[in-house]
């Protein structure tokens, strides 16, 4: 459930960033390249092209936000989260259920045709408010028992996956060999990357510097204080997995996988990441992050 809510928020954020870029003066025809990279970040470019053939802003926004046939669209995520919530209704709190259900009802009542460009920003704001509400209800009211731990683990695995995808789409821009720092074009690219994880302001508080590729990569991979960095996700996953083991009084392969990953990220330096190749690092990380989902299913008989 948390995993779907996390994804719904990430998709809404990508739609927001894409839309915002489209408001700046055009560098490619109809901002097609910008939308392509948004859809690639979302991991849905192939599905999109199969369905729409050609990239346009209207189609991209519809696919990201409303298309029920895109399993990652905000609509699909909210539906799936709500279905999950109903299934486990007795093990979530009333606050969580109401936050989830009212979001679902309101979303289903919206006719996508009425979300014109003029109304889109307010609609995306609303979506983010709703996901925050759900998360707040969960943190405030849910007993710290197994369903809490599973829910949160799902959320942070999803978040790490989202951060990796965003980095991987732009990885060639983040290589140290890319020396053209400070140009308008670059600044705009970095800002886009950071905006898509709501980090364009906090970046300056950490680095006291203009956007630089090496810093952006470090911020999103290794910084423990950045709530969307890979390191942060795994710090939390370790806590959560520990809580789960204490609760059940057992340990499993998932716990040790998480510990390995956390230790690996903690010891990692940006130089080593670049030496390995940023893209290779991200691909490897993503595979291990996915393997974690499988390990949890195996450990706790979700199969």
């Amino acid at each position: 459930m948390s995993r779907y809510v996390e994804r719904a928020e990430n998709m809404a954020r990508l739609a927001e960033v894409g839309f915002r870029i489209a408001l700046t003066p055009d560098t490619s025809a109809g901002h097609q390249e910008d939308w392509r990279s948004m859809l690639t970040s979302a991991g849905i470019i192939d599905d999109f092209l199969e369905r729409h053939g050609e990239i346009s802003q209207e189609a991209a926004l519809d696919f990201l936000l409303f298309d029920p046939d895109n399993p990652s669209s905000v609509r699909s995520c909210i539906r799936a989260a709500r279905t999950n919530a109903r299934t486990v209704r007795t093990s979530i709190t009333r606050d969580m259920w109401e936050a989830m259900n009212s979001t679902y009802l309101a979303f289903e009542a919206i006719n996508p045709a009425t979300i014109t460009d003029a109304r889109l920003p307010a609609f995306i704001d609303w979506t983010r408010e709703r996901t925050s509400l759900f998360r707040g209800a969960l943190l405030n009211t849910l007993l710290r028992r197994d369903n809490y731990y599973f829910s949160q683990i799902g959320g942070f695995v999803e978040r790490a996956d989202n951060t990796v995808r965003i980095l991987d789409v732009k990885y060639y821009l983040l290589l140290p060999s890319n020396q053209s720092v400070g140009g308008d074009f670059d600044t705009y690219q970095w800002e886009t990357i950071l905006r898509s994880v709501s980090a364009h302001r906090s970046y300056r508080h950490v680095f006291h510097d203009q956007y630089k590729p090496r810093n952006v990569a470090e911020f999103l991979i290794l910084r423990p204080e950045m709530p969307r960095s890979l390191r942060f996700c795994y710090d939390w996953l370790d806590e959560l997995a520990g809580g789960l083991c204490d609760f059940y009084g057992t340990s499993g392969s998932a716990k040790s996988k998480i510990e390995d990953m956390r230790g690996y990220l903690k010891a990692m330096k940006m130089d080593a990441v670049f030496q390995m190749g940023l893209h290779e690092f991200l691909v490897d990380f993503r595979a291990r992050n996915n393997a974690l989902t499988v390990a949890i299913s195996d450990d706790y008989n979700f199969g």
């Binding site: 408001l23 003066p25 014109t116 003029a118 889109l120 920003p121």
Partner: peptide, 16 residues
């Protein structure tokens, strides 16, 4: 303005 009149930004080339 970007929030309430996005359609106008799409139709002009406005320096950021």
């Amino acid at each position: 303005m970007m929030h309430i009149f996005p359609e106008l930004f799409a139709r002009h080339r406005i320096a950021p």
